[in-house]
């Protein structure tokens, strides 16, 4: 029992509730806002886990940029109303099958987590300041960093080409 655990339990409850809201909501805008809440709670969990840089990047990139893009596209297309009877009659077995397979997946993950116990270590705090992350990014991880910059450029050009009006 660590002192962080009560905080994490509260955060985890909010996180799971917002994920279920995303899964069950009938309006795409509400689903996107539930996902923003989920990402915000995730940022607080990162702070508890001694990862302040990742927490700030989570808020600015995920909850900021990516979700604004989602909301923009939903409102641009006017696709916020999702039809109530989503499943066509031909594949009505799909829903129970998906729930059963999801249960199997969760069971496997729990088995991997709790049956194969890793050894416990002393929990000293790593130096995870933005300075240390920057030194690591531009030191041993310089090549992946440059590859990511090219990937982002290609994605930008691809998005422009795909949505161009001909």
């Amino acid at each position: 029992m660590t002192p962080d655990l009560p905080i994490l339990i509260v955060l985890g409850a909010v996180s799971i509730a917002s994920a279920l809201g995303l899964l069950l909501s009938r309006n795409a805008i509400y689903a996107a806002l539930f996902l923003v809440l989920n990402f915000g709670v995730g940022a607080v969990i990162y702070l508890v886990l001694n990862a302040p840089f990742i927490a700030v990047v989570q808020v600015s990139v995920y909850a900021g940029a990516i979700m604004v893009l989602f909301l923009f596209v939903i409102m641009l297309l006017g696709a916020e109303r999702l039809s109530p009877g989503e499943n066509p009659p031909g594949i009505s077995f799909q829903r129970p099958l998906a729930i059963a397979l999801g249960g199997v997946l969760l069971g496997l993950a729990l088995y991997a987590l709790f049956v194969r116990q890793p050894p416990t270590t002393a929990t000293a705090l790593a130096d995870s300041s933005p300075t240390a992350i920057g030194l690591s990014l531009f030191g041993p991880y310089l090549f992946p960093f440059e590859v990511v910059s090219i990937l982002l450029l290609v994605a930008m050009v691809g998005a422009v080409v795909l949505t161009r009006n001909r």
């Binding site: 799971i16 989503e86 799909q94 999801g102 993950a109 987590l113």
Partner: peptide
């Protein structure tokens, strides 16, 4: 928590049609 959230995401991909 991570495995529960991942499973909810899988269910979303399998169940939603949008």
């Amino acid at each position: 928590l991570s495995s529960v959230l991942f499973t909810i995401g899988v269910l979303g991909v399998l169940l939603r049609r949008s």
